[in-house]
Design a protein around this nucleic acid. Structure first.
Lengths: 246, 246
DNA sequence: CGAACCCTTGACTTAATTCAACAACCGTGG
DNA sequence: CCACGGTTGTTGAATTAAGTCAAGGGTTCG
């Protein structure tokens, strides 16, 4: 299923015409990026709205000493540059974690499609709120939570987002994440991520071998780190088996 | 001067009619909030778009143990809920740092004003990018930079934003910040903020007594922490006497 | 002039980093 | 099929940035 439609249907009730519009958008040129490659780099001009149709990517920034901080994960259905019409150049980079497929859409075409439907416009607005909300929550996460809760929170959020687009079932999802990538995202070292992961395993809250992650008790994990899906602004989606916390 | 106009004029070239529209918006109901009070709290429904006309506020979230993390500062000309039309309830709180004045605008009135002018719509889009860019940079800041650079970066950003609306001149600006507030924003303790502030003073990069902050050498401070104004997306504003970094 | 705040300082503790080594895993090519 | 090199995961010991606790000194404001 078209992952953009899957996500948007969590914001608003899509009708036939909206569905057709979204399908039309994703029939645009596609692009393939190898793992580790960049979809776009800081400072570059923006030519397209890119919609991820398959694969995981991340927004990141490089520091003077070469370290990088990942500031967001991009999953299927996420857009790289919904603001392509106004922004001249990227203030951050977007890197492919897996091999990536994305649709390249002309900014003006994208804009016209959004304006053609009230519901699409609304879904776009929801998505913008969702991105902002996530970014604020991420700021809180790295700013205030200790490592254990920080990793737990990232896992809860990924689980929720993946479940919303049908890529997580019964607390299990496929993932290309490594402990190194988690470290860059959480702002701690990979050595420490390793110790935290083992702690979570010992508590029976995490199964993570290779490319598969299972959260045996999502509620308990959410409780541990104070995760609530509120900041994701998906009024039409409640994670099965998970409390929609306070 | 209308601070909303001041900021928007950094994004696009406003024309007479845009100016009139913005003035009209700010003639709406005003509200006064005492220092330490909340403009709105997490979980509450959103009734108005609020534009800050005077005073400083902050977006924050509370943790289970009572600590709070400030995730953004709001200055005159900033909007509390530009997304009032779609979002049902707040995913964070907004607290007044100083005594605050803000204009209360009906969401639909606000929306109509924006749609009435291409340039206003563009300025709103720029502002949204600016907020997102700041939030990403803040995530990077608390996630990856050591305390000294972290505080330095916050000072650089505040200086730039205040200069953009005419509230900072020659590296000096009035501020209601305390070291405690800085600590909540930077995700470190106030004791440590104090040590960092003294370090910056010793390096000749910061004068901060009471309600006034001076950055004697903004370029050097920006260099120290790798600050660049790119993420603020103000194409029509370069800080006088400061390099517009890489 | 007293009472909140806020700033400052020192001694001690702790969470997380660093460094280093090694084990497990992966895809690739011989 | 196995050998290989590179990446990722794991562990331990030493180090460090930042936190905690506690006390005292300044400001500001009613």
């Amino acid at each position: 299923m078209n992952p953009l439609k899957a996500k948007f249907s969590r914001y608003v009730a899509l009708e036939r015409q909206d569905s057709d519009l979204l399908d039309g958008l994703l029939r645009a040129d596609a692009r393939l990026v190898p793992p580790g490659g960049d979809l776009i780099r800081e400072g570059e001009p923006i030519h397209f709205v890119k919609v991820i149709t398959d694969g995981w990517a991340c927004r990141y920034k490089l520091l003077a000493d070469g370290r990088r901080q990942i500031v967001a994960f991009l999953l299927p259905g996420d857009m790289c540059n919904p603001d392509a019409l106004v922004v001249d150049e990227m203030d951050h980079s977007i890197g492919a974690i897996t091999e990536m497929y994305c649709a390249l859409i002309q900014p003006d075409v994208f804009d016209r499609a959004c304006l053609a439907s009230t519901r699409l416009r609304q879904a776009m607005a929801f998505d913008a709120c969702s991105m902002l909300g996530m970014q604020r929550e991420w700021t809180l996460n790295v700013g205030a939570r200790p490592a254990l809760e920080r990793i737990a929170h990232m896992l809860c959020e990924l689980h929720y987002r993946l479940a919303a687009i049908g890529l997580a079932v019964d607390g299990t999802f496929a993932t290309p994440l490594t402990q190194i990538i988690m470290a860059e995202a959480a702002g701690i070292t990979s050595v420490h991520v390793n110790r935290v992961v083992q702690d979570l395993r010992a508590r029976g809250l995490l199964l993570w071998h290779g490319r598969s992650i299972t959260l045996p008790d999502p509620d308990a994990l959410a409780q541990l780190c104070g995760f609530s899906p509120r900041h994701l602004h998906m009024p039409r989606f409640a994670l099965p088996g998970t409390q929609v916390g306070v």
